[in-house]
């Protein structure tokens, strides 16, 4: 009896055409998820507004008027009212997105790069190297992130760059820990053993076999950190450790509008609403990407 083949008969549901790449399929699944799409659209809108702020903002963000302080929402000429110095709120919210998004995203991007590198090394090498790296990072991990951010930022001194550095340092241990645990899991799987059997060196195995399986989960986790980072950054600005006035930034604006909470609560809450909307969009986006990346389900 000749060799019996199961080629072609199964799985019968698959189209005969060649499979598309992994990421193109993730995108196709994402495009079918209305919540994620809506979040992405909102974030894109906020980002575009921030980038093209000088073109679309109706007023000058720094120019105030003593007579037109704390105008309510919908006042003549001020769509979203004015702040405690009579500056146009809409303009300042649009400009504020620049700093806020920068401070929310950049530290996470940096932490993603640094944390993944350290975590993959710790996870793949294992043993003592792993122990030294992970125990060192545990020291940072032991502090609440708010306290750590304030402490580092305070020690380095106020200012945008120090603030970014402090936030990056806060997130590196968290990203590292996730990258390390995913790598450790992946490393034990048979396909890594098979790759080792093929005689490939560790770098080639990490680059081609490990990284593809680690980046996804770490990316999703990091996306979720953006909202935390935005809130932390706002907090730092609120405490006077981040952006300096009169520079518009949502956290700082929330702080300076604080006394106005009883006179014009709606206007005073606007920067907080922006922080809320942006961070929730990042969170939902992270969730959407997570489920889209789990193609097998």
């Amino acid at each position: 009896m000749s060799l019996a083949l199961d080629a072609g008969s199964a799985p019968a549901t698959l189209p005969a055409q060649r499979s598309r790449g992994y990421w193109s399929r993730v995108l196709r699944r994402l495009s079918r998820d209305p919540v994620t799409l809506a979040c992405a659209a909102i974030l894109l809108l906020i980002l575009l507004a921030a980038v093209f702020a000088p073109l679309i903002a109706p007023a000058d963000p720094f120019k105030g008027s003593m007579i037109k302080r704390l105008q309510p929402i919908g006042a003549e000429g001020f769509l979203l009212g004015t702040d405690e110095l009579g500056r146009d709120m809409l303009t300042r919210l649009i400009y504020g997105g620049r700093q806020s998004l920068l401070m929310g995203v950049l530290p996470v991007v940096l932490a993603f790069g640094i944390g993944t590198t350290i975590g993959v090394i710790a996870g793949y090498v294992g043993g003592r190297v792993n122990m030294v790296i992970m125990r060192t990072l545990d020291v940072f991990y032991a502090f609440p992130s708010v306290l750590l951010a304030v402490a580092i930022s305070g020690a380095l001194g106020a200012g945008l760059n120090n603030c970014l550095l402090a936030l990056t340092l806060v997130f590196v241990p968290q990203v590292t820990r996730v990258a390390e645990s995913v790598t450790t899991q992946v490393r034990q799987l048979d396909y890594i053993e098979a790759a080792r059997m093929s005689g490939a060196g560790p770098w080639m195995i990490v680059r081609e076999q490990v990284l593809g399986n680690v980046l996804g989960p770490v990316f999703v986790y990091s996306t979720g950190l953006i909202s935390v980072c935005m809130i932390l950054a706002s907090g730092l600005s609120f405490l006077g450790l981040g952006v300096k006035p009169p520079e518009p930034e949502w956290g700082l604006m929330l702080n300076t509008l604080r006394p106005a909470i009883f006179q014009n609560p709606l206007v005073a809450a606007l920067p907080g609403a922006m922080i809320f909307i942006t961070s929730i969009c990042f969170n939902l986006l992270a969730d959407g990407i997570r489920s889209a990346m789990d193609i097998r389900s």
Binding site: S19, Y22, Y191, G199, A200, M204, E208, Q209, N213
Partner: peptide, 23 residues
């Protein structure tokens, strides 16, 4: 475990070609 032995992110052709490329 035939499933755990194959990297979920690689196509079958890439999975087989990995070893020869390593050499």
């Amino acid at each position: 475990d035939s499933f755990a032995s194959l990297n979920p992110r690689l196509t079958m052709e890439e999975a087989i070609a990995f070893g020869p490329r390593a050499h």
